[in-house]
Design a protein around this nucleic acid. Structure first.
Lengths: 149, 149
DNA sequence: AGTTTATAATTGTATTATACAACTAAATTA
DNA sequence: TAATTTAGTTGTATAATACAATTATAAACT
């Protein structure tokens, strides 16, 4: 048992989670950052998804949300803009500022990419009972929400 | 619904898993690869753990297990050797070959690092009911095992 | 109003993890 | 014994990132 803050936590489960997270993350970084399904690398995909789902945003906000440096987002956005997947909307009240929104081309490339990802994922978990998929999704979400702190 | 190979899969759960995995992976790569708790970066930690848990191994085997290029492991190992965390055991039957094993110093650094990781993780999930932790660990494991294919 | 300070974004530079290719030395095979 | 294969290293290139310097604009303060 691993005693912490008065809680007794089953050390096996703790270590299991730690190990499996590490494995997952190693694999995922080595797969998805290199093997770009289609034309999108992981950062590009995440950026497009953010904008497709939650609407136009400036690089500063995006950098905060992604916990990346502004310069990093600036370059990623420039690359996606250059490819015609994003376009700039100047801020009429602030000449320094603009928002990035997704183009129709961006939407279609994003959609295709997402479908490929979902298909791959659904193949991985297709044998799982539906309840397990549901619980897995919810626990991942809960874990991520706890991580925010 | 997302129909695939004759299965009807609840699209919400599929998309939830996809989204939460992406978030988790983005955060994890940006946190753990940079913020090295103590003196170990993520690759070094994983390498030490592999050897601490499963014993000495050569770079070729390690590269296969980690799905990395041999040259990458060779450099990571050289760095850990230089720091005194790993040492070489020459293969008496093959002059080209050797195995990497962990030193006492390596063990102690690894142990300290792992404890810090476990502590951080246990803080994240300390409020979770024990059953959820158990299920989360098992589903992560199952997911990783499915990924092997 | 004019000067200073703060802000949004870009660009320059360095670092790091990685892959691939070229290479070295040793073992195996023909 | 020569040719080939294998284990590992080293050279080189790439990509994602952070940090620092810079530019242009806006806001705040005399």
């Amino acid at each position: 048992m691993f005693v912490l803050r008065g809680y007794r936590m089953n050390e096996n489960h703790l270590e299991m989670i730690e190990l499996e997270l590490a494995i997952l993350i190693r694999r995922a970084t080595n797969l998805s950052s290199n093997k770009k399904l289609g034309s999108l690398d992981r950062s590009a995909y995440l950026l497009l998804r953010r904008i497709a789902n939650k609407g136009a945003a400036g690089v500063k906000l995006l950098a905060e949300e992604f916990m990346l440096d502004i310069s990093t987002i600036s370059r990623q956005a420039a690359s996606l803009e250059q490819k015609g997947f994003l376009y700039r909307i100047p801020d009429p009240l602030d000449g320094r500022s603009y928002k990035l929104d997704i183009t129709e081309l961006g939407k279609s490339v994003f959609k295709e990419h997402m479908e490929a990802r979902l298909k791959r994922l659904s193949e991985i978990i297709e044998e799982w009972p539906d309840e397990e998929r549901e619980v897995f999704g919810k626990l991942l979400k809960k874990f991520n929400e706890s991580l925010i702190l």
